Amino acid sequence: MLVLRAVIEDYIRTQEPVGSGALTRGHKLGVSSATVRNDMAALEDEGYLIQPHTSAGRIPTEKGYRYFVDKLATVVPLSKAQKRGIRSFLSGSVSLDDTLRRSAQLLAQITGQVAVVASPSLARSALRHIELVPVSTVTLLMVIITDTGRVEQRTIIVADRPGDAEIAAIGSHVNAISMGKSLRRASADVHASAQEEPAGTSRALIEAIAKVLDEMATQERTSNLYMAGTSQLAHGQSADMNVIAPLFDALEEQVVLMKLMTTLSEVTQSHGVGIAIGSETHTPGLLNASVVTSGYGQSTAGDEDDDATGSSATGSEPVAFVGSIGPTHMDYATTISAVRAVARYLTEVIANEEDPDADPDGAA
C-alpha cells in the first residue's frame, strides 16, 4: 500500500507513468527496486494499477484512486494564514449571492479546477419574514425572506384587494404562523388558517399567499449554481482535451450536476466530504473526472409530515453544497482541504444570517 500511495502521489504530480526506479529514488520505501517491481505487478494484478504500454511504468486505475482516497491520502488542513486569506477575500462580499460567487472563484483559484457552489435551496430553508406591499388596486408584491438570507419576490393578483390596514394585519398573522417553518409546512398552516376566515377579501388573500408558498416549495428543487475555473482548467499544464471536452459537456447539464453533487454532499465519506471518482458519478461526461463536494449550512425548517410519504426533515441536512470537479488525477489532498474550508466558512455565513447579532469572526 505504501507503493500504491507513492505511485499515485507521483502520478498526480507528473501525469506520467511511474516506474519502479523512480519510486525507489524518490521515496524512502526501505526495499529494493526489485521488491517495488514485484509489488507494482501485484497491484496491477489486483486492479489498482495499469500499465498503459509494455515498456512504460504504471498509472492508477479508478479502483486505485478510490483506495487512495479512502485509506491512504493524507489531508493536511489549511494553515491559519490560508484560512485568514479565505476569510479576508470572502468577507468583502456585499450580499449572499456575492459571497457564493466569490467562493466559487476562490475555490477554483486554490485547486485549479472547476468550482461549483449552489445557493441555499428555498425548499430547505426556513421562513424568516413575509412582507406584503400594495402595488395597485388589484396587485400586491409578496417578499419572502428566509433564514439563509435568500430574498424572493412574487406578485399576487386579487379581484378585490383589502385595505392597507387589513393587509398589514394579514401580514402579521401570516408571519406569526409561518416563522421558522419550511415553505411546505408554512403553506399548509396558512391554508388551514384561511379556512377559519369567513368568505371575503381577507380569506382570498390568505389563500393566495398559501398558494404562492406551495408553488415555491414544489417548484424550487434546484438552486442557482455559481461556477468558476473552466478556463484555467482548459488551459492548465495537465489539460487533456479528451478528458476536458466531455467534462465541459457534463457541466452544461446543470440539473444532472445538481442532483449528483447534492447527493454527494448529503453522504459524508472520506475526510468529511463526498467523493465520486469516474464511473461512480454515473455521468458519461465525468468518466475521467472526480467530484469532491461538501454540504454547507444546516436546515432548520420544521417539516413534520412534510410530504405524502411522511418523510420529515431532521435539521441535519445541508441547505446547499460547494464542490470541485477535475480530472481523476487531481490533487485530492488540496482539493479536500479547500472544499472543507470554504464549506465551513459558508456555514458560518448562513448561521450569521440566522442570527444578525452573531459575531462573524467568532468561529474558528
Rank of each mutant, 00 (worst) to 15 (best):
N352R: 15
V349E: 08
P327C: 02
F89S: 14
S136Q: 01
T335A: 07
S312W: 13
D160G: 12
G19F: 02
E152C: 10
L72C: 09
S279G: 10
V190K: 01
M330I: 04
S55P: 01
G85A: 12
V114Q: 07
A176R: 15
P327Y: 02
L122S: 06
A42M: 08
R5E: 06
K211F: 14
Y48M: 05
I157G: 10
G323K: 11
V243I: 12
E207C: 08
D359E: 10
E304F: 13
A199R: 13
S202Y: 08
P120D: 01
P246W: 05
D249E: 15
L233R: 11
I144P: 04
M258F: 15
T314F: 10
R150Y: 00
G278K: 07
T61G: 06
L286A: 07
A313R: 15
A204I: 03
G30A: 06
E16V: 11
E252N: 14
V151T: 05
T347L: 06
I277M: 05
Q82I: 01
A208P: 09
Y48G: 01
S238C: 12
V292Q: 12
G297R: 06
S279C: 08
T347M: 04
K28I: 06
T263S: 15
L127I: 02
L233M: 13
T230G: 04
G26P: 05
S231N: 13
Q237D: 12
T281C: 09
A34W: 10
S279K: 14
I110M: 11
A73M: 15
S182D: 09
E46S: 14
I244T: 04
R203V: 01
V349G: 09
T24P: 01
D240S: 14
G163V: 02
L260A: 10
P60Y: 04
P360Y: 08
V243A: 11
A81R: 14
E253N: 15
A108T: 02
V151F: 03
I275F: 07
L90D: 01
Y345I: 02
V212E: 10
A276I: 00
L29P: 04
A351T: 12
S311W: 12
Q113T: 05
A351Y: 14
A351C: 11
G112A: 01
A159C: 04
V322D: 07
T309F: 13
E131G: 12
T293D: 06
R101C: 06
P17F: 01
H53Y: 14
I145V: 05
L78T: 00
P52I: 00
I350T: 09
H129A: 02
R150H: 07
S33G: 13
M241I: 03
S294A: 15
G272D: 05
A228Y: 04
I277C: 04
T230K: 12
V151H: 11
S279H: 14
V3E: 00
A245G: 12
G272C: 06
T24C: 13
S32N: 03
T262N: 14
A118N: 06
I156D: 07
G21L: 03
G285T: 02
Q232W: 08
S337L: 05
L251Y: 10
A186R: 04
I209P: 07
A186T: 00
P52E: 00
S88M: 10
Y345R: 13
A333K: 09
Q254A: 03
Q269N: 11
Q269D: 11
G295L: 03
L251C: 03
S121W: 05
V339L: 11
H235C: 09
V190T: 03
A301E: 02
L78P: 00
L346F: 09
